[in-house]
Amino acid sequence: MGDLAKLLHEFGPAFIHAALITWKLTIISYSLGVLLGIALTVLRVLPIKPLKVLVGAYVEFFRNIPSVALLIIIVFALPDLNVLIDYEPSVIVALVLVCSAFTADNLRSGINTVEAGQIEASYSLGMSLFKTMYDIVLPQALRAIVQPMTSLLIGLMLSTAIASQVPVPHRELTGLVDMINNETASGILTFAITAAFYIGTGLVISWAGAALDKKARILR
């Protein structure tokens, strides 16, 4: 217990700061990633073959590459191509690219949960493409993707740990564990506190997502 008090006394602020960094990275990457993912989905749904191929390749690439490998490429390999991105932005770029790929995939699946027949019915009623998308397709697609997008948010938060692999100016939670472990001997407690932050945040997001999903569920 004494150890815990000592640890919190010395590193309490550092933990809070690291948690804020983790949340900041998560929120920025998720927002940008989702926006990019939406744009990509729009391009993918258009009946233009080159776009479908290009976006398809993009999604497959960034879904299948390990995030940390992507980060290492951005931080260490891109400078050789005269593309210099600072460390923290690099982490965000890596996370945004991966998040956008998963978002594009989820949103496309969501759109395709709508039966083609409903679109035909909508057209038969004289509705235009835009009205059909706005009134029929998107409301249902968005409801369908609440769960996968919640999981994506949690996964993205856990992925911010990759920031510990490059010298970012402000440490996030996993990077903090590394640092604290070098300076003290209270490894397990440090680990436990860090774990608590991650799990706690994850549970809150999970709970919120489940509540949203329940509201969104259509009686079938």
């Binding site: 940390v68 856990l158 992925s159 911010t160 740990a161 990759i162 510990s164 939670l173 996993t174 564990v177 590394d178 472990n181 001997a185 490894g187 397990i188 440090t190 680990f191 860090t194 774990a195 991650y198 799990i199 994850g202 549970l203």
Partner: peptide
């Protein structure tokens, strides 16, 4: 909830940094 609520990197750090001590 514990094992899937933390990044795998954190668990690896646990084995790498903390367990040896």
């Amino acid at each position: 909830e514990f094992f899937r609520g933390v990044p795998s990197l954190l668990l690896i750090y646990f084995c790498f940094l903390i367990l040896p001590s």
